[in-house]
Design a protein around this nucleic acid. Sequence first.
DNA 1: GCACAAGATTGGCATAGACCAATGGCGTTG
DNA 2: CAACGCCATTGGTCTATGCCAATCTTGTGC
Lengths: 240, 240
Amino acid sequence: MSTDAAPAMPKYYILKTELLASIAGEQPGTLIPTERALAEKYKTSRTTVRQAISELVAEGKLGRIQGHGTFVAPPKITHVRQLTSFSDDARSQGLRPDSQLLSLAMAKADIDVAAHLGLDDGAVVTRLERIRLIDGEPLAHEIAYLPGKLPRFKANLEKAGSLYAALADMYGIHISDVEDTVETALAGPEDVRLLGIEMGAPLLVVHRLARDAAGVPVEWTRSTFRGDRFRFVSRVKSAV
Amino acid sequence: MSTDAAPAMPKYYILKTELLASIAGEQPGTLIPTERALAEKYKTSRTTVRQAISELVAEGKLGRIQGHGTFVAPPKITHVRQLTSFSDDARSQGLRPDSQLLSLAMAKADIDVAAHLGLDDGAVVTRLERIRLIDGEPLAHEIAYLPGKLPRFKANLEKAGSLYAALADMYGIHISDVEDTVETALAGPEDVRLLGIEMGAPLLVVHRLARDAAGVPVEWTRSTFRGDRFRFVSRVKSAV
DNA sequence: GCACAAGATTGGCATAGACCAATGGCGTTG
DNA sequence: CAACGCCATTGGTCTATGCCAATCTTGTGC
């Protein structure tokens, strides 16, 4: 119950706003002045300049490369919809999707995975870890757990081209409904390494539980998306 | 797998990890040492300590009050589901939901609102701006646009208790399907003022377009949720 | 006993600078 | 001419410090 309406705009935020205005309409890839030059130009310290730039990088407005410079980032936004193929969806937007297999192996379900898939702790599951790419750029890191062992899964996955297609065509597993949970997180060292983003950048973490027509869980996936290049779209029809 | 190969772990990240471990199991509200004390204890600078704490605050693990201290934050996570009433949903989780009306007025649709609602630019719409509260704490800032003018809307909204209930019971408007778009954003001065969070904190921005059975848009809403206290849940059944 | 002022404490913002690491240009050398 | 290596440039991290603002404690005067 304090007095409000006293914004007290921090200096770095003013600078951030000015930078945002100055790059409006610029070509993606255009280099902006160096941090040291901006600090001098705006009569401030490099620390303050970096704080302003850091937020613009987190929002996907700018990018930066050590030893090279800071540049205007391309405003690529990728929409990902539920129950559609990531690949098909991207292609329909004129983008070039790709997937990079990090690991595919049998594993024992830990307590968390077992609980979500309705299995006993330590049960055998198939663990599929991939990087999702758009136009060659990493967009998401995905770890999927499937109950049991799937024979010749790797070959079938490559042939079908998508996880859901492989499950349906090769194993007769049809996804009937999915439940997605979306929340925010901040990038840690592993996210930085796999997605090529900065420490502390905002992420969208999506947990997916998919069931077949009988209500039996068939997939439990954790996907970590770059927060700056990604929108999650979900449609729901009322059962009226 | 925890400490990996050679990604050059920044000092502030190590400190962040140690702080996180040290507050595990602590009672919410417990004060942690002051920034100056931590800087001395860990043989580092206050700047580095603040960077570590700032990320933990952004993740909802810690909170801080100027002049008072930094404390363990309560791990309140609120799940918000599609097509259900925010209020009913919160109550079912044992929480006390509330809503604070900021403004309710007729307005002329700008180009953006008009496009989404399928109206002409400048058409009359009802603009409803609210703060969503959980246990007295702000959770989201919401601006809803409804086509046309709704007579005695304010009274009816209060009586019905929720927007969708009011639309259905008083005006015969039934929501048939909704499309939600979820993305991340960083808190600016207005978000700080309305939601009581920190500058640069991650937000979840949800745009909702709701249609009636005839496919006519009846609601266009922009909701800004605190990223640290909120999960968005969406269920989809395949039409097979 | 209470109200209020002053000071101590704590987080908020900003400065200036040091050193490291990656990049890219440029000159030397084979 | 190509390959290599040095080095200037630029971002990445961290230190040390100062002052401001909000909060809480304490002491004083009535």
